[in-house]
Nucleic acid binder design. Structure first.
Lengths: 229, 229
DNA sequence: ACCTGAACACCGTTCAAGT
DNA sequence: ACCTGAACACCGTTCAAGT
């Protein structure tokens, strides 16, 4: 097994190896060298498939959005979310947002993926198109639909980033349970009391419900209320 | 200049050097070695101040939230945003969100900072406290205020992440204007047409206005409409 | 076209040692 | 306590060379 054009890998195979690494060892493990190693390649061979690491990550993002498109069109075909008007628009956006969250939230480092790329591939654009269609069918003109789409995109991205970062830290803490969290940190010296924040910390809200609630409230502001609501 | 306990740096001096690096060369330049070098230290000396890189980044995040607290309390003292009721709550949240965006958006990589840390330092908690106070004064109970606070936090984080990532890529492209963006990418083969997405891409919305609009719409959903509105 | 091997300029972190 | 110097196990990327 030396030089020569032995076998030729497909992008799908490379991305599959990259996602395996992402799932198993987190975002930092998705390195050019790491993916190459998992495929039995030299790091430099990767550069015949992708011009740089960014392009590899962009390919992964596109694949995630591709799965999302499949998941939501399947749901559309068998569900009632293709309904017209504000209620239909609401249901379609909520379904898209939830599906996107489901795809990202338990993949450590998937957010790093999203931030590393422009989100302008065809599959990402397809999701935009679906959101824009939902909002225009909900009565918004294109300019408002564009802003609404961006608001949803941004909200979901932020929510997933938040939950994923928390989950990643939890995994990390479980692997290395050394520092017992030092109850009173000496790094910050000026202690204050935050009555509301302290009490809210004990609420322990369910992340899934909290996410859905946030998207619903955003939709309350983005879409005029449905007549039947 | 060799070993020995010559001078002792303060955390403030170290963080100042770190922020200089962040501003000048982006998030990737904020390395343990880089900051140490800027201070005339050996990388290993950094570990007497912070147990690891995470702690350094957490210190930077706390400082950003500290500036935010100062900026908004100053605005509160001289402005009308301390008004009561829904309108006052609305104004306070919008002011906080805008101030946070202003602090983060043109610092390349500041978002990486936020995602790298738990956002549980005292200054970050103070911002939470202010948001919770605004929402409870707007008529929400603590559980609802907690969810509303999280929704705002998530929305701002996502929006800043999005705009900052775009800006970072623009800077990068300006520094290295080699690849002419290849009008028809060969990486993605199945071309489709996205009429709405294509048209919306030409809108070229102002990011600042778009952000404010999004936060306002979110607030529309979070707070019941003011009587005078 | 696809791949290797060596190299360059970096990382975070640890360890033993100096003052 | 604060710091250095050497070292370990990594990065992304480039370049010359092989088939």
């Amino acid at each position: 097994m030396r030089p020569g054009p032995r076998r030729s890998l497909t992008h799908a195979e490379i991305l599959a190896a990259a996602f395996e690494l992402l799932e198993a060892k987190g975002f930092d493990a998705v390195s050019v060298r790491g993916v190459a190693g998992a495929l039995g390649l030299t790091p430099t061979a990767m550069y015949t498939y992708y011009p740089n690491k960014q392009a590899l990550l962009a390919g992964m993002v596109e694949q995630v959005f591709g799965r999302l498109a499949i998941a939501t069109t399947a749901a559309d075909a068998s569900g009632s979310s293709a309904a017209e008007g504000v209620a239909g628009a609401r249901a379609r956006v909520l379904a898209l947002a939830t599906a996107l969250r489901d795809l990202l939230v338990d993949r450590p480092g998937a957010v790093g993926l999203l931030l590393a790329t422009p989100l302008d591939g065809p599959n990402a654009t397809r999701v935009d198109e679906e959101l824009l269609a939902a909002f225009t069918s909900g009565g918004l003109d294109l300019a408002a639909a564009d802003r609404a789409t961006h608001a949803v995109r941004v909200h979901v991205l932020g929510a997933v980033a938040f939950d994923a970062a928390r989950a990643a830290r939890a995994v990390e803490a479980a692997v290395q349970p050394e520092a017992p969290a030092a109850p009173s940190e000496t790094l910050w010296d000026d202690l204050e009391s935050f009555p509301l924040a302290d009490r809210s910390r004990e609420l322990d809200d369910d992340p899934v419900e909290r996410f859905a609630w946030g998207v619903e409230r955003l939709l309350d502001g983005l879409l005029v209320p449905a007549p039947d609501r």
